[in-house]
């Protein structure tokens, strides 16, 4: 039977990460009213179903990262926060494409979560540079480090990647981190960019 989460429980689950995060994602995706209202909002504003799904997922990922990094201050409800992220993402997308310039709306911003176009472009370029580096450390390393960054426990990571023991996972994570660090050290400019 599905579990029902309060907003506080969702925030705690996201902060905790790992399986708690996944439970919250399942709830948000399948059982909360968030998805339906956001999909409707985008579809009513010339978005296709695919556009709406992409924006919704992108919005959730940004919300999760913001919460895990402590950027969500709780000034608005989680629902308002996610909805505002998704609305801004959608307006940014169609403003860029200039297809629906006549339907831009002003959205009140209670939380700092959104980047300006320049900042986003910079991030995109940096992300592409990082992807190249990550491609060199391998998919398995990428998976382990991503899960670790999402606060999955060593036991959960072990299950996900199919290693035999947590000790092996811990050792592999250590190796992956150092391998990535060595690649990054080869690009002093990237270090400066990353550290702002």
């Amino acid at each position: 039977m599905k579990r029902v989460f309060t907003e506080e429980e969702m925030i705690r689950g996201i902060q905790k990460g790992g399986s708690a995060l996944e439970e919250v994602l399942v709830f948000i995706y399948h059982y909360s009213p968030y998805r339906q209202s956001i999909l409707q909002f985008i579809q009513k504003r010339m978005g296709s179903r695919e556009d709406a799904e992409d924006i919704f997922q992108e919005g959730i990922s940004r919300m999760v990262i913001s919460i895990q990094k402590g950027k969500f201050e709780g000034k608005s409800t989680l629902r308002t926060y996610l909805t505002t992220i998704c609305k801004n993402l959608w307006f940014t997308q169609y403003t860029r494409s200039n297809r629906y310039a006549n339907i831009i709306e002003q959205i009140p911003v209670e939380e700092k979560f959104e980047m300006g176009p320049d900042e986003e472009l910079l991030l995109k370029e940096r992300s592409e540079g990082l992807q190249k580096i990550l491609a060199q450390v391998g998919e398995k390393c990428k998976k382990i480090l991503s899960l670790w960054a999402l606060h999955y426990s060593m036991r959960e990571i072990t299950q996900e990647v199919g290693y035999k023991s947590e000790g092996m996972t811990r050792k592999k994570k250590h190796q992956c981190f150092k391998a990535l660090m060595n690649k990054i050290k080869e690009q002093p400019d990237l270090i400066k960019e990353l550290l702002g």
């Binding site: 994602l25 990082l130 990428k142 660090m181 050290k185 990237l190 270090i191 990353l194």
Partner: peptide, 28 residues
């Protein structure tokens, strides 16, 4: 500095993992 930059780099690509998780959840 290299350690912090690496940690930040990892933080930036977790989005991909979240999206992968969401794709998986969407299939359920």
């Amino acid at each position: 500095q290299a350690y912090l930059a690496t940690k930040k780099a990892i933080d930036e690509f977790v989005k991909e993992e979240i999206l992968a998780k969401l794709d998986e959840i969407a299939q359920r």
